[in-house]
């Protein structure tokens, strides 16, 4: 089971969360202008990365907030957790994982805002991370 550090609630079991698939898919600005192919791409085509993948999760039985995660789809290691609206962090530069020392500590470190808010201001802090459970 994954141990996921919710930005608001701290490390919790995977069973408290729901998966939201690939992150950073914007709703097309002008859907009516899209060709069938482009609309199919938006609806049905997602990256299926073998390796580091940016994806969304929601803490459905906790704070019910959405957040983004960078996770390795082979080792299942969680590299980074960051706010909705924040762009994908570059993990190659700062690879050492920073485990939060106390639950809740990192909730101060970024502006995670409300789920579903488009264009949420990016958080400034280094993203909290988590380790994989058994």
């Amino acid at each position: 089971m994954l141990l996921i550090s919710c930005p608001n609630c701290g490390p919790r079991d995977e069973t408290e969360f729901h998966y939201g698939g690939q992150a950073h898919i914007a709703y097309p600005e002008n859907p009516n202008d899209l060709s069938d192919r482009e609309w199919a791409e938006y609806l049905f085509y997602r990256e299926n990365t073998k390796g580091t993948f940016a994806e969304r999760w929601v803490h459905s039985t906790g704070c019910r907030q959405w957040f983004n995660m960078l996770r390795d789809t082979v080792s299942y290691e969680i590299h980074s957790i960051y706010a909705m609206g924040q762009s994908r962090p570059d993990i190659t530069a700062s690879s050492p994982k920073a485990e939060p020392e106390k639950p809740g500590e990192f909730t101060q470190s970024g502006d995670y805002g409300q789920a579903g808010e488009p264009g949420l201001a990016p958080g400034t802090a280094t993203a909290p991370t988590s380790s994989e459970g058994v």
């Binding site: 089971m1 994954l2 073998k50 789809t73 080792s75 299942y76």
Partner: peptide, 13 residues
């Protein structure tokens, strides 16, 4: 398992 994965293993729950 709900998440994308290539690891040929999943979560115990």
């Amino acid at each position: 398992d709900s998440y994308n994965g290539y690891g040929q293993r999943g979560s115990f729950h």
